[in-house]
Design a protein around this nucleic acid. Structure first.
Lengths: 231, 231
DNA sequence: CGCACGTTTCGGCGGCGGCCGAACGATCCG
DNA sequence: CGGATCGTTCGGCCGCCGCCGAAACGTGCG
């Protein structure tokens, strides 16, 4: 039976420690075993075993480099799968309110695997929809104008990507949807390369630089009104 | 931590019996507990317990009707999630060749949750792409002509659906992709209503009727050349 | 060349959860 | 109203798997 394959792959994510590690890895970067052990609050030995299982399942890959072993998500499709699963989990969460300072600091702008999330990510979705760059009629589609504007900003929309250009993404700290998919990934890459934003010290943190005002304005995001928390 | 929510939802699918039940339910219809127990080869009592867990997790819903309890997938999004997961499982399966007669009979035409699969499903994808009704540039999109043709056939494309109109779907018996998403779901509904196809006796079986020739021809599928197995 | 640090392997412990059969409950039918 | 059929609940058994600390391994650095 093929059916056991499904159970096997689900079982890999079914452990709290492994789940925590995968969620951490959604920042798209490579973590060491030690770091992963720390965030999951387990012994390194245990973390190492978990990584082995994740590798066998094709979720992550191990990169040996000197005496360190780096671990990262194997494939964008894996990231989407994890997000998809997390999204369902989120949907039926009684959910207490989020609290920690660490999370608060990440609320404004951060990455979600390979695209922007946080309030900035949410604003991007709202802005692009308001300007008619994205259509929400059935699923999400990039309009002709949307394509023009992104291209004008130097964002390279890979034509041969397998995943859709746009999808709704609801990551695990933010309650509202932001934009995932190929186009937002390309946008983040462009934003980093062009110095509109840069990575902060915390894993998923993003700092917005002055140069971001113009390009993000073109996407319907007014950074000035966004900068300060609403409350 | 929210992270445990991910593990919890994964844990629900992490059991072989529950996975088998979910896969069976992907035919989109309501099954009784007894039937589910039989396909999963477990005692009814155990199956009942599993259904309870699946309900609590929001994957399926229980419909009491007389002395029977029917179970079905709660939501198209759940079906997509399961398919997504199964797809990843499939991707890294050493995979023996499929054999059983039962599967062979379903190869030609069957449903995959709420849309067409099997060789017919695959041909539909190929045909619509060949006719320029579907564009595969980046992700999958329905072209203007595609929309016209479907509408002309009486297929109602719900504008307010949340899921995308088209997505690639690779179900667990077929190796090649077929079309999933809102549009193919609407197409199947129309095909059943209009008498182009009808449901067979096996759970996922679909029988193609003569009236199908014309509408499917418009979608680039030549049923005559497809009818007989290639080997 | 040896120590230190990061990682992996091993052995053993403990708990969770899936499994069944039996008893109970509910519903339909004669 | 009784017997048949389906489902659910309960109790108890068993195996799997996540956990840790200790020890082995390998790489870089002094």
């Amino acid at each position: 039976m093929e059916t056991i394959a499904l159970a096997e792959v689900a079982a890999v994510l079914a452990d709290p420690s492994r789940a925590a590690m995968c969620l951490a890895l959604l920042d798209g970067r490579a973590w060491t075993i030690g770091e992963l052990a720390a965030t999951a609050r387990i012994a390194v030995s245990t973390a190492s075993e978990h990584v082995t299982r994740l590798v066998d399942a094709g979720f992550v890959e191990r990169l040996k480099q000197g005496r360190h072993a780096y671990v990262r998500i194997a494939d964008p499709r894996v990231a989407e799968l994890i997000e998809h699963l997390a999204q369902h989990a989120d949907r039926r969460a009684p959910t207490g309110l989020r609290s920690s300072v660490r999370v608060r600091k990440l609320e404004f702008a951060r990455t979600c695997y390979d695209h922007l999330a946080g309030r900035l990510g949410v604003a991007l979705r709202t802005g692009m929809v308001a300007r008619g760059l994205v259509d929400t009629g059935a699923g999400l589609t990039l309009t002709g104008r949307g394509r023009e504007v992104l291209t004008g900003l130097g964002v390279e929309l890979g034509v041969r990507e397998r995943r859709p250009l746009l999808r709704d993404c609801l990551d695990w700290t933010e309650r509202r949807e932001h934009l995932g998919g190929g186009a937002p990934a390309a946008l983040l890459a462009r934003a980093l390369a062009a110095g509109w934003v840069e990575r902060g010290h915390q894993p998923r943190a993003i700092r917005v630089l002055p140069a971001a005002a113009e390009p993000f304005g073109a996407l319907g995001v007014d950074l000035d009104t966004l900068e300060e928390p609403a409350f």
